[in-house]
């Protein structure tokens, strides 16, 4: 349900291959970090930004793109929604089990 958006927005999606959260960067590349994400600061820009998902959908690289509202902080963009902050942070539970070759946390928290 469309909420009233006040602040800047960034475009996020999940990678088709592994489901990781990704963000469209200033260079129009999808990155796993929100740090260099491209901002939309008006409704028009938001519509344009959303359209930028199409090539990656067509090439089957990403799924389920959507815009999220962020706050600009000194540490970089931080999502307004709690869920999105958790999505970026990764599990708060330390995965302490026997770490095998592919056992690193995908998302540094």
């Amino acid at each position: 349900m469309a909420k009233k958006i006040t602040g800047p927005q960034v475009l996020t999606a999940n990678q088709l291959s592994d489901g990781m959260a990704v963000f469209l960067s200033n260079d129009n590349v999808w990155l796993t970090s929100i740090e260099n994400a491209q901002f939309a600061r008006s409704e028009e820009e938001a519509t344009d930004l959303e359209a930028c998902a199409l090539p990656a959908i067509r090439s089957n690289d990403i799924v389920d793109p959507y815009l999220i509202e962020i706050e600009e902080t000194e540490a970089g963009p931080v999502p307004v929604e709690f869920r999105e902050r958790r999505r970026i942070a990764g599990p708060s539970v330390q995965v302490t089990f026997n770490t095998r070759p592919n056992g690193q946390l995908a998302l540094a928290s």
């Binding site: 999940n14 592994d18 489901g19 990781m20 959260a21 799924v63 389920d64 958790r86 999505r87 990764g90 599990p91 995908a106 998302l107």
Partner: peptide, 9 residues
């Protein structure tokens, strides 16, 4: 049984 979750499948 395959979901797309918050951080991964």
């Amino acid at each position: 049984g395959l979901y797309l979750q918050l951080h991964a499948y």
